[in-house]
Amino acid sequence: MSSSDIAIDSGAHNSHVQHHFVNSEQQFESSKMGMWVFLVTEILFFGGLFLAYIVYRAWNPELYTAASEELNTIWGAVNTLVLIGSSLTVAMAIRSAQMNQQKGIVINLAITIALACVFMVIKYFEYAHKFHLGIFPGEYYTYTGIDHPKANIFFSIYYMMTGLHGIHVLIGIGLMIWLIVKARKGAFSSEYYTPVEITGLYWHLVDVIWIFLFPLLYLID
């Protein structure tokens, strides 16, 4: 065996490095780039709904300003702060992994999950209040409080956008539970924290999408 074979092999000897990567660093960078490609598809996925919002708003400008009154700006703002707080704690969890602070990873991820649950509980009460009034999507809309023949359009778009976003929050909660289980077994360190990093990227993108949903839906009346 020549010395160059040994040299390449030594870089790949960490247990987490899969055989098709040269070393840990290349594996990390590849995973991260793969995640960014996925986030591009997510941006275009949500982009279709943002486009529906724009097209129907251009057709019915007065409807949007009237219907937006039904959304509670304060609860929307609270949920924005909650999600930003959860992005902060995810960033802290990644920092904990980079610093080899095992407890810090678990604590920061646990706070993130708690904040994500607060977000979903607030969303649940917002939805429940609208259902109580008869504000359902599409043809099931029975609310008479908005003087517009097609008031259901705004709420169909509202439910699609916040609903798809909410599903992403739930998936994020699931991913972070998985991360906590792995972290408690000591799976992450400054040498290997790829799952924490790319779940963090996903979570920050969910936050960014809400950063745009909040003004578009809640702040236009």
Binding site: V37, F50, I54, A58
Partner: peptide, 24 residues
Amino acid sequence: DSKFNSLLLVMSIVFLVLLFGITL
């Protein structure tokens, strides 16, 4: 980070603008 990842994000925004623009 690697500038390539920034490029991916910028390209997604470019295609988003195309989607919005052509539809409108």
